[in-house]
Simulated scan of single mutants.
Amino acid sequence: MNYTILVTGAAYGTQNASTAFLFCKALVETKNILHSVFFYCDGVLNANNMITPATDEFDLIKAWQNLNKKHKVNLYVCNSAALRRGIIENEKILNMNVKKGNLAPSFQITGLLELANSIKICDRIIQF
Rank of each mutant, 00 (worst) to 15 (best):
M1I: 13
Y3C: 05
L6Q: 01
V7T: 11
T8S: 13
T8E: 06
A10H: 01
A10Y: 00
A11Q: 04
A11C: 06
Y12Q: 06
G13I: 02
Q15K: 13
N16T: 09
N16C: 11
A17M: 02
T19L: 10
F21W: 05
F21Y: 12
L22N: 14
L22M: 13
L22Y: 14
C24Y: 04
L27G: 06
L27V: 03
V28N: 10
V28C: 01
E29D: 12
T30A: 07
T30S: 15
T30Q: 13
K31M: 08
K31S: 14
N32C: 10
I33A: 12
L34Q: 02
H35T: 11
S36Y: 00
F38H: 00
Y40W: 10
C41F: 12
G43H: 03
V44A: 03
L45M: 13
A47M: 09
N48S: 11
N48Y: 09
N49H: 15
M50V: 09
I51W: 02
T52D: 14
P53G: 03
A54M: 12
A54F: 10
T55E: 15
D56R: 01
D56L: 08
D56F: 13
E57G: 03
F58Y: 15
F58W: 15
F58H: 15
D59W: 04
L60S: 06
I61R: 08
K62D: 14
A63L: 07
Q65E: 07
Q65V: 01
Q65K: 03
N66H: 15
N68R: 12
K70H: 14
H71D: 12
H71K: 06
N74Q: 13
L75P: 03
Y76H: 06
Y76P: 01
Y76S: 10
C78M: 00
C78K: 02
N79Q: 12
S80V: 11
S80E: 11
A81W: 01
A82W: 04
R84W: 07
R85T: 07
I87N: 04
I87A: 10
E89M: 09
E89Q: 07
N90A: 06
E91F: 10
E91A: 14
K92F: 12
I93E: 03
N95A: 15
M96E: 11
N97L: 05
K100P: 03
L103N: 00
L103Y: 05
A104D: 04
P105F: 10
F107T: 01
F107S: 07
F107G: 00
Q108N: 14
I109F: 03
I109Y: 04
L112K: 05
L113R: 09
L113G: 12
E114R: 08
E114F: 01
A116Y: 08
N117S: 10
S118C: 04
S118Q: 09
I119E: 10
K120F: 11
K120V: 10
K120Q: 13
I121W: 03
D123T: 06
R124E: 11
I125F: 09
I126S: 06
I126Q: 08
Q127K: 13
Q127Y: 05
